[in-house]
Design a protein around this nucleic acid. Structure first.
Lengths: 114, 114
DNA sequence: CATATATATTCCTTGACACGTATATGCTCA
DNA sequence: TGAGCATATACGTGTCAAGGAATATATATG
């Protein structure tokens, strides 16, 4: 479970991280808001903490978890060399995201005009 | 295997994608440069193609694979809300990681206080 | 046609990991 | 001290995906 990507591959972990954007949260708050069993939350938080995505402060029995930026910055750094490929600007992306990619027929070479 | 993150969780797939930054490559070239068995390369390319990370053109028996930007832009879009957490000045990590960054003039976004 | 080359696919095994359930640890307060 | 809440961990189980070996498909060439 080394890489930043492997950590983020888990949807529930991404949900937790996204939830923490607004502010720090206790385990119980995360549990309620994401409707996730408590052990599940704790286990994912453990993974996220070990990977440096979050840190916790102890508040009596509660633990308040908050984001740490470093791993996400690392992700951004990884992404950087690819930015040269992007078309002009963000508008093309939004068009793409709402569309389903059609399957690619490998059969014949139909040449179609546009 | 839906999410962009799940696709990128595999180190060999990241290696392939990073290799394709320089230019398009045939399966055989990828195989040689990454010292990966040919079926492994083909299988990962299949996953990458299905997920829209790459596309291929047929050149006789060869297939030339090249990058497609959309999924990586999607990743960047996911990352966007987290950028507000990054330290305003460059800290040690960012200096360390940013050596890879090409000299692209970065457009400064409007900064939002909380 | 036969053969070589390039790539894709299939089958099988194995290991990682996410989940549920149960239980453990730890803190607070009466 | 004990009760009760908040969080963490242990264990067993099922699923899914990656890797290796073998084979299939497709194209070029002699």
């Amino acid at each position: 479970m080394e890489s930043v990507f492997a950590i983020l591959a888990e949807p529930n972990r991404r949900a937790i991280i996204s939830l923490l954007i607004s502010s720090q949260q206790s385990v119980g708050e995360i549990e309620r808001r994401l409707r996730m069993p408590q052990p599940t939350v704790s286990k994912h938080l453990r993974v996220l903490r070990d990977a440096g995505f979050v840190e916790a402060t102890v508040d009596a029995q509660r633990r308040l978890y908050r984001l740490k930026p470093e791993p996400l910055q690392e992700l951004d750094a990884w992404l950087a060399p690819f930015r040269q490929f992007w078309p002009t600007h963000l508008d093309a992306l939004e068009r793409h995201l709402d569309r389903v990619e059609p399957p690619i027929p490998t059969k014949q070479k139909t040449r179609r005009g546009k």
